[in-house]
Every structure is written in C-alpha cells, then in structure tokens.
Design a protein around this nucleic acid. Sequence first.
DNA 1: AAGTCATATGACCACCCGGTCATATTTGTG
DNA 2: CACAAATATGACCGGGTGGTCATATGACTT
Lengths: 209, 209
Amino acid sequence: MPKETFFNLPENKRQAIFDAAVDEFATHDFAQASVNRIVAKTGIAKGSFYQYFENKKDLFLYIVDQIGAEKMSYLAPEIENFAQTNFFTFLRILYLGGIRFAMAHPRYAEISRRLLASKGTPIFDETIARSMPATQAFFDNLLTQAIERGEIRPDIDSQFFTFIISALNTLVMEYHIEYVSSQYDETIMQTVNQFIDLLQYGIGVNHSR
Amino acid sequence: MPKETFFNLPENKRQAIFDAAVDEFATHDFAQASVNRIVAKTGIAKGSFYQYFENKKDLFLYIVDQIGAEKMSYLAPEIENFAQTNFFTFLRILYLGGIRFAMAHPRYAEISRRLLASKGTPIFDETIARSMPATQAFFDNLLTQAIERGEIRPDIDSQFFTFIISALNTLVMEYHIEYVSSQYDETIMQTVNQFIDLLQYGIGVNHSR
DNA sequence: AAGTCATATGACCACCCGGTCATATTTGTG
DNA sequence: CACAAATATGACCGGGTGGTCATATGACTT
C-alpha cells in the first residue's frame, strides 16, 4: 500500500502520478517499467516518489488494485442482475462488460493483459495466482447451477470449465481489440456471440441449433 | 544468423553455448535475459560471445529457429499422414504432437510460451507476427476442405477459425502442463479430447453427440 | 519570531546491462 | 622454425536501474 503521504497529496498531483504510472505500466511490463521515467513524466523528484511508495512494486500493486476495483464496480450491477439467468446469457453479459470496459480504458486493459501474460513472475503469483481459489469457487458454483438447470452437459469437469471460461474471457477481448475494435454494443455483442456460440454448440455440424 | 566462427566451434563447445542460452531464455524473457549469465554459465569470455553472434537478438532468433525446425521435423510426418483425414482427427494429431514435444522439451516449450506471450515487442513481430500470413493461409485451406467434407458448419468465419485453432493449441498445452502433466500418450489424448470435444460440440446440452 | 514536524529534493550508491576493442593466444601453413 | 591468419580474452565504456539519505523547504503551532 502507498504511504500516508501519497493520500495526503492534493488530488491533481496524486492523479498526475497515477496517470504517469498507468502510462508506464501500459507500455512496459513490471520489470521493464522505470521509476525514473514515471517521476520524470510527473515532474516530481525521485526522492519524493519514495516518500509516497515503498518501492516500484508497491505502486504497481496499488494500480492493479484500483483497476480491479473500478472494473468490479463497473460489472457488479450486471452480475447481480443476471447471475440467476441462463448461464450463456450471463456469460454474454460478463464478456460484453469486459470488452466495454477494455474499450473505455485501453491502458487498463493493456496493464491487465501484460499482467496475465507474466505467468511465472512473483508479481503474477501475488495477484492473479492468489485470486485463483476465489475464481475457481465462483465458477464451480456457476457450473453446478447451470448443470442443474440443464444448460450444460453434466460430464464437464469443473477445473476444465473454469480454465476455459477464463481463457475465453481473455481471448474474446483480445480478438475484439485486434480484429474488430468497435465501441458499439451491437458490434461487441457480435464478437461475443461468436465465442459463446462456439462454447455452447462447437463448430461441428450435426448439432440441434 | 550466428557468425561462421560459431559453426566452426567443436561440437561440445557449440552445444554448451546453445544449452546455456536455452536455459537462460527459458527462465527469462528476451529483455530480461543476460548475455553475462550465458557466458558465465558456459565459461567463455564475453568477447568470445561476440565473435560467435552479432548480438543477443542474433542468438535468440537462432534458438527460436532451431526449436521451430526441430518441432517441424517432429510433426511433419504426422501432418503428411493425416492432412487429408477428418479435420478433428487431424487436429487431435496436431495437438497431441505439440504436447508430446512440449513434454519432451520443456525448456523449448517455455521459450515458445514466453515468445508467444511477448506480444507488442519487436521480437514478437520478427517471429510470430511475421509468420501469421502463412498460418492464416494454412488454416484457410483446412477450413475450406473441412466445410466441403461437411465436418464444419459453413458459417464459421475463417479469421475467427484460425484465431481459435491457434489459441486452443496454446491452451491445450498450457492446461496439460499445468493440471495434468503426464507423459503417457493415452493421458495426453484425454486432455486433447476434452478440448476437441469442446471445439466440435460445445459444452451445451441438446447436441447430437 | 521561534521552533517543530512533515514533506520535497537530487546527488549519490552499488549494481547490472549490452557491446567494444586492443591485446594475447592458438592454430594452420610454408 | 617463422610467419600469418583466426580466435580467445577481459578490462573497459556509456548508460540505465531501484533505492537511499542528508539537506532544504515549507507549513503549522506556540
């Protein structure tokens, strides 16, 4: 956590630091990111930086935390509203929200993408890996309900399920940003539908769609 | 390309350098990898390194090239034998081969994984991105044939198809290494089947499996 | 005005990096 | 053996890093 001095700062200065840091971490992974560049861009002294933060990691974890919180407050209402509906409908909402958020905050999306891709680093373990049990539990629950409702085949393995749903979340975002890159909800929904369709029915023929 | 001096080296020395470099790039991404550590581990002088290679990138691209070639020579016979069979059968063979290769050469797999995850870096553009057109063409062809044979729904988009098949290739490997981690062909095939099944039929109910 | 306490500063530290180059050593040849 | 060509060497370079710390500044209290 940042030190008290950081939170005592006038808001514009605090924002400037946050913004410069977001810029830096959106364009460099954690190891490559430079405190020197952040303070230069912000116009504060190097020493001041260390009055505000324990070290580079302190700042990075704070930013990741903030991004997570903002995304959560963005998605929470929808999750509440749709959690009890058909699983595939719910997932559509979830993926749609994720892409909308990414399109609205491309730097945040880039930071998240870099973090997700940094498997094997201590930073990954302290963030993504640490939250795996909660993720697993959440999707476990979702899967059980969906099977009970007769929406998903009962022989789907829970670990496999979580892996796929999480992976598709990343993939649908990556695909939309790379190949579609539209901000309109209808277009985003087309991308999402392509992936949900694959998930639900596969790409083979002979199914009863 | 490495310089002539590198290829003139006695094989054990050449191997030692190659091996140390593989170690380094399997545990650090390109930017983080250190020439100093490679020469230290090999026991050669720093100056010698630059008698053999133009620079760090020269060595890295050579290693990636070698890994690619070895994997290709490993998969080529199977590709020839199965290219004309049912698409999903063919893909099973491809994924199975990929995982077997990764299990047999975990350091190579790790280097490939890191490279694939390094999207946005110059190194990525010079390797993965550069070979995208060929990949796209290969899968375009595969998709057309599979649709003609009535194995895949004709409304599947080619770009989406390539994206998914490539992504699943990475995912099935990652999943097997992370959660299964068995060397036995039967067990690997179980992992592969989980993914192919998802691809072909989806996870929804009401299909005609 | 004096004193105290929080904050701001940038020179500085030790360390590591990729890459160079003059020099020493080895190898091959006549 | 002598000479030449190829190769091996490590000190050295400029530049970057994360982090520290003595000192200066400013703000608030008595």
